[in-house]
Amino acid sequence: MLKFGDAIEALKAGKKVTRKGWNGKGMFLWLKPAVEIKAEWCKDEALKKLVVENGGTILGLGTICMYTHDGTGRKAILTGWLASQSDMLMEDWIILED
C-alpha cells in the first residue's frame, strides 16, 4: 500500500489509483491530461462561448477525475476530484492494474 504522494506520482505516470478504505466498490482516480479544446467539440453552450471568444480553441487544464456512483447508485464521473485530509493522510492507496 502507498502514501498519498506515491498515489499522485502514479497518477502522473498514467496509472489509476484507489484507496482500500473507500466505501464505494470500483471507485478509482485517473489524471485527465491538459488538452486544447475546440469550439466544435463543445456541447456546453457556456464553454463553447468562451472557446469562440478565445479564437476557437482554449486550453483545458489537466485534472484528477474519479470513477464513482451518484446518489442513486448509477455509475458516474467526477471531474476535478479533491482529496480530503483523510485521503491525504491515509497510507492505503493502491495502484490498479489495467
Rank of each mutant, 00 (worst) to 15 (best):
G21T: 12
L82Y: 03
M27G: 02
I64N: 06
G26H: 11
A34V: 00
E40K: 08
E9C: 06
K38A: 01
Y67K: 14
A46L: 09
T68E: 04
P33V: 00
E45L: 15
E91M: 07
D92C: 08
G5C: 06
I64W: 04
K48Q: 12
N54G: 12
T79D: 05
W22C: 04
A39K: 11
W41A: 10
T79K: 08
I8H: 01
N54C: 03
T18H: 01
M90N: 14
E40R: 04
Y67F: 11
N54M: 03
A76E: 08
M1W: 07
A10V: 12
G21A: 12
D98M: 01
N54H: 06
A46C: 05
S84M: 06
K75S: 13
N54A: 15
I8K: 13
A7W: 10
P33T: 00
K15D: 11
L96M: 06
R19D: 03
K16Q: 11
A76H: 10
K12A: 13
E45S: 15
G56S: 13
G21Q: 05
I8E: 10
L2T: 07
I58E: 10
I58L: 14
C42S: 09
L82W: 04
L59P: 11
T72H: 14
R74M: 07
I95D: 04
A13C: 05
K43G: 15
M27T: 13
A10Y: 09
E91F: 04
L31F: 08
T57F: 09
E53Q: 06
A7M: 13
G14C: 02
A46M: 08
L31C: 01
E45W: 05
D70R: 07
H69V: 15
T18Q: 02
L50A: 12
C65N: 13
Q85V: 05
E9V: 05
Q85C: 01
D98W: 00
M88H: 00
